[in-house]
Nucleic acid binder design. Structure first.
Lengths: 108, 108
DNA sequence: AATCTATTTGGCTATTTTGCCAAATAACAA
DNA sequence: TTGTTATTTGGCAAAATAGCCAAATAGATT
């Protein structure tokens, strides 16, 4: 893989990797219907507030979400809603996995 | 986040995380037009063969690719081609990032 | 100014991931 | 059987990630 291709795939992987964590994926899903502040997200997720803030920073740096300051709180929203399309395919993969483990049992 | 939701997002994240690595993303893209054996992929990627094998195992365990043995070689192909749809959105995110860094410069 | 709330950042530890080498395994060929 | 090719696995060290607490910052309120 030449250097250009490598850095191209590195950039692409950074975007995908940002979504490759349960909490961050949950956040993306939560933002489907509009912006939410950090404290609301924290209440729904249930980990330390600083941890939520770090996850949000990763998503923001990847370009998946954007932030807006309002008073002393910060609201996050989806920068590119197309990432919601990932869910459909992921469910398809998981469904295929379930089917396969069933038939694999039958074969044995 | 309750236990059920947690494990649901854990499963989804595993699928996405499998694609969140430059080499593995490259592999997925390579398989767009049909199956390839490990040695061919290794030649294109240029890292150790054992490393390629490990990446393939991660993609297979996630249900993204499937393997077929033919003689002494193993061919891999996309189990769920819908994962190719990710690329379009990822490019959109990267393009938005490029636009944003330009306008951010202008503002400063 | 002093205080309170919301969020981010520094610093630390535990865990996971990555990639290499060497060894094991599997299938084919001599 | 012996050797050769293709692939996987064990084991290790370096690097990256995740999550917590405490401290810092920013904006509102008293």
């Amino acid at each position: 893989m030449d250097e250009v291709t490598q850095s191209q795939y590195q950039a692409r992987a950074t975007v995908i990797k940002a979504m490759g964590h349960p909490t961050r994926l949950f956040i993306v899903h939560e933002l489907e219907h509009g912006e939410q502040c950090v404290c609301d997200l924290q209440a729904k997720i249930g980990v330390d507030l600083s941890t939520v803030s770090r996850h949000l920073a990763i998503l923001r740096q990847a370009g998946i979400i954007a932030s807006r300051k309002a008073g002393n709180q910060v609201f996050y929203n989806l920068q590119c809603p197309c990432v919601l399309n990932f869910f459909e395919c992921v469910e398809k993969v998981l469904e295929t996995n379930r089917m396969k483990s069933l038939t694999d049992l039958r074969i044995k």
